[in-house]
Design a protein around this nucleic acid. Structure first.
Lengths: 189, 189
DNA sequence: TAAAAATCTAAACATTTGTTATCGTTTCTT
DNA sequence: AAGAAACGATAACAAATGTTTAGATTTTTA
């Protein structure tokens, strides 16, 4: 759980004792490639922290077409975060893209953190802020960059994404078909 | 400043004295319709709270085309929130859609709140969480609803939007042309 | 209040993007 | 290691969406 410890300690001050208590209520879990961690209609009761591997957040439309909303990799928190916060049934699915090793953080211990930790709300604020920025960045890129620049710039956040994720999922992340992405790659701009 | 007081007190416990100090460092400001509150390339140093009126967040692409990112109305906080948090030059513009009366909350007093208020971080967390949900909802709607349902459902968040906002801005919010929106309206679904 | 500007619809046409199918290659499964 | 499945490129065609223009209203400005 070292990576989670480092991530939390980079954001807030927390005693060893408190951290130990927090972690003792978390759970380590391994998933194989393409497994579903979280399904629509079920109210999410936990946030995942990725120690190793990769996850995508996706939504399946009425016609059964999958649309990728986010990718997440090592040292990121991931969930249907809106549904988690609103205590409502999730809309997104979470699916592993590789064999993935996560820490499961139950809602109960997160809420304990908000109430009992000196800087619990600060941690929550920072995570929410980062996630907001994380969601906002591709929106900005959509309008500020050409398709070619977008194709290149996605590696800034996900250094090796073009080796780790099939192209058709990147296409679905950008709202285009794989065929169209393949065409764009062969253009100059 | 009553509406801001109510909004804050609905989220956290705060003494009269603290609230008074906070508000004394805020500023009330009036803008006419179509005025620009915040421009690209300038690092935003404040968050706006709308007391009366309506604001849109937009991005202008390389070809000069404007894309609406958000609408915001009474009792909402609004800013290029990513840029504000990252202390980076903003990418979005903020523009009034009506004569608008806002409270300007400078970064300095917001940071004072995080440091000095018992529940300052909690307030920041809740605002970030709400804004996240606010940004996530239309993404979910994009895939879960038909265009007709989207046209109707936008009034759930903005009850009178079709009277307050010209249709071509709603079109730009959905990433389509005004002509295309006009066509969609004449379809059944 | 008159002129100017903005708004919405509509039509004709152009362009972009999607769909389907095929093929060679790579990756997975057993 | 062999067969099956997934993947990415490409082409031909179809469908969706954009562009341009015009005209009838409404709203704003002076």
């Amino acid at each position: 759980m070292e990576s989670l410890v480092n991530t939390i300690r980079a954001m807030i001050a927390i005693s060893d004792k408190e951290l130990e208590y927090f972690l003792s209520h978390c759970l380590e879990k391994r998933f194989k490639k393409n497994e579903i961690l979280s399904k629509p209609l079920i109210t999410p009761n936990e946030i995942f922290f990725i120690q190793k591997g990769m996850i995508r957040v996706l939504i399946t439309d009425e016609e059964g077409v999958e649309h990728t909303i986010h990718f997440a990799q090592e040292n990121q928190f991931i969930a249907d975060y809106s549904a988690f916060m609103l205590k409502r049934p999730s809309v997104y699915s979470l699916q592993t893209l590789e064999d993935t090793f996560v820490i499961v953080m139950p809602k109960s211990i997160i809420e304990w953190g908000y109430q009992e930790l000196q800087e619990g709300d600060k941690l929550g604020r920072l995570i929410a802020e980062y996630y907001f920025i994380y969601q906002d960045t591709p929106i900005k890129n959509m309008f500020a960059l050409t398709p070619k620049e977008r194709y290149d710039s996605i590696t800034e956040v996900f250094p090796n994404i073009h080796n780790r994720v099939p192209q058709h999922m990147i296409a679905s992340y950008w709202g285009i078909t794989p065929v169209h992405l393949s065409r764009l790659k062969n253009q100059r701009k």
